[in-house]
Amino acid sequence: MSIAAVTLPSICSQIFNCAFPVRATVSTGVTNTSNLAIEGRNLSYAITAKNGKLVPILNDCSLCIPSGQLWMLLGPNGCGKSTLLKILAGLLNPTHGAVYVKRPRSFVFQNPDHQVVMPTVEADVAFGLGKFNLTHNEVKSRVTKALHAVGMSDYLQRPVQTLSGGQKQRVAIAGALAESCKVLLLDELTTFLDESDQIGVIKAVKNSLSGSEEVTALWVTHRLEELEYADGAVYMENGNVVMHGTPSSIMGFLKERISSYTNRINP
């Protein structure tokens, strides 16, 4: 099935029993559950192996992310986080299910060397704007603002290969921000980074979200310490969405699993 850009109003309240935090975005201050930026229902994805057999990667995954929030997608390696994110970005077509993601959306790859395509910082941030018909001044202003948001204002003309991994990652995020996208899909941005760069990149994303209530981010990670920056989280295992809720509930769930595992191996 191809990606269905269908509107699924308040589908999450129907398909999920779990309560998740939804920030009010309407002037009345009433919680609006229909204000969703990302919604996926019964998403499945499989690939065909060399012997012709279908290998399932995702099984019946459903999730919904409210607008203006930073959500984390957690899970062990190989559980299907990146595949789910690529489906949300439109890079892969689900074999089954429906998906809705607000437009415009941006995807930031795990490895910044895959994302940054131009030789210098400002040219790369401006690359994504090529699809719009913008004036020179408007492009310049967007590039400056995006680089300022990620703390890279002083690196306008720096060759990309001279930047550190964290700086490249910030340039990649700035490229996504410059497009004024409503949804940021971020795939394990902090994998190659040290602690200071890791915090720097998370804060850069948080800053960009605080600047506009329209911007939503879904951050794939397997670092539990990053949960403290999130407004909500989804936990995956073996291609299934296991849990969907607040960071504290996910953390509690994971701690419980860790302790039960520890008790099992050390009776």
């Binding site: 890079l91 790859f109 895959h114 400002e122 401006a126 690359f127 994504g128 090529g130 699809k131």
Partner: peptide, 27 residues
């Protein structure tokens, strides 16, 4: 593999294969 990933990144960033329709801004 790099080339494949970069081409994917370009698609995600709005490049559709026609250089005439995708402006390169020289700032």
């Amino acid at each position: 593999s790099h080339a494949e990933q970069i081409s994917q990144a370009m698609i995600v960033r709005g490049f559709r294969g026609d250089s005439r329709n995708h402006k390169i801004y020289f700032l």
